[in-house]
């Protein structure tokens, strides 16, 4: 693996389904270019994409910050949105408040947050109803021994 610390930010616009996934897709490329093993890249990309889609579906706007070091990739997605009243309920597989038009796009099965948790090493969600939600996660970049 090559390269030093790398950080940046992507701005996410609520309901912008045309560009939905663009941030996660460029982060995926960044990791691939650094020679991160494919299975780790896949775990990371899935988590980033589910997080990005949630911000696009539920929030007005969001900021996705990332930092990549030799050992770890970390993402903090802070959004301006309705917030999550009950985080443990939101983490339950199958729980979703997505409207029908989101379901018609193939989302809204209530699998996103549980799947993020499954793919990352650490994940935290903080949320204030009426203000927004911040989701943070990280993944170690070297294959575990």
């Amino acid at each position: 693996m090559t390269g030093g610390a790398d950080e940046g930010v992507y701005f996410i616009t609520g309901k912008d389904f045309t560009n939905a996934g663009a941030a996660s897709s460029s982060l995926k490329k960044l990791l691939e270019d650094r020679g991160v093993p494919a299975d780790i890249v896949r775990r990371f990309s899935i988590a980033a994409f589910e997080a990005e889609m949630n911000a696009i579906i539920y929030a007005v706007a969001g900021m996705m910050r990332y930092s990549i070091t030799r050992d770890m990739v970390k993402v903090t997605l802070q959004d301006m949105g309705p917030g999550i009243p009950d985080i443990s309920l939101a983490m339950t597989e199958g729980y979703s408040t997505a409207p029908d038009y989101i379901r018609e796009m193939g989302f809204g099965s209530g699998m996103g947050l549980p799947n993020i948790k499954k793919n990352v090493d650490h994940m935290t969600i903080t949320s204030v109803v009426g203000e927004g939600t911040t989701l943070e996660f990280d993944i170690a970049l070297s294959p575990s021994p």
Binding site: A20, M53, G106
Partner: peptide
Amino acid sequence: LTNAQVIRTAEIAD
């Protein structure tokens, strides 16, 4: 499904 999210999902999931 035939929308753009299908392509993004496919890209993300290899």
